[in-house]
Simulated scan of single mutants.
Amino acid sequence: MDDDLAISALAALAQKDRLATFRLLVSAGEQGLPSGQIAERLNIQPTRMSFHLSALERAGLLRTHRDGRRIFYAVSYAVMKDLLEFLTKDCCSGHPEICCDLGPQHTETMATRL
């Protein structure tokens, strides 16, 4: 992943509703969810939801597939993985063991730092 793609992905995630959407879809798995269900679960108006889904899709973070009349949105796990690898590529001055397990039980949270 190059700088421009990373900036595009991070910019798309730098909004509360889009971040919540992405996190919901990460937990939904490869099948994803239809846009109406995403809007309902997040209590976002469908027109606003469409705007946010489009922004995430343009950034390459989401993929879509159609099932009848419904459009399903799912995370592009390959792009998500590329972004995470891009962000941690030169991790910790050659000591990747510091950040190799990014699970919450092993990291200081932003909430504790703020």
Rank of each mutant, 00 (worst) to 15 (best):
P34N: 14
G36N: 13
Q37H: 11
I38E: 00
I38N: 00
E40R: 14
E40Y: 11
E40L: 13
R41V: 04
L42Q: 05
L42D: 07
L42S: 06
L42A: 09
N43Y: 09
N43C: 12
N43Q: 15
I44L: 06
I44R: 01
I44M: 03
I44P: 13
I44C: 05
I44N: 07
I44Q: 04
Q45H: 13
Q45N: 14
P46R: 10
T47M: 12
T47E: 11
R48C: 09
R48F: 07
M49E: 08
M49G: 05
S50E: 09
S50C: 08
F51K: 12
H52F: 10
H52A: 09
L53F: 06
L53N: 04
L53D: 07
S54A: 15
S54P: 06
S54M: 12
A55F: 04
A55Y: 02
E57L: 13
E57C: 06
E57K: 13
E57D: 12
E57R: 14
R58Y: 04
A59L: 00
G60K: 00
G60D: 00
G60R: 00
G60H: 00
L61P: 02
L62V: 03
T64F: 06
T64V: 11
T64C: 06
H65W: 01
H65F: 06
R66A: 12
D67H: 14
D67W: 09
G68M: 05
R69S: 13
R70P: 07
R70Y: 05
I71E: 10
I71C: 07
I71W: 08
F72G: 02
Y73H: 05
A74M: 07
V75E: 00
V75N: 05
S76T: 09
Y77S: 09
Y77A: 10
Y77R: 13
A78F: 03
A78Y: 03
A78E: 14
A78R: 11
A78V: 07
V79K: 04
V79F: 08
V79N: 02
M80V: 15
M80P: 06
K81P: 02
K81D: 15
K81G: 10
D82M: 07
D82W: 00
D82E: 11
L83G: 04
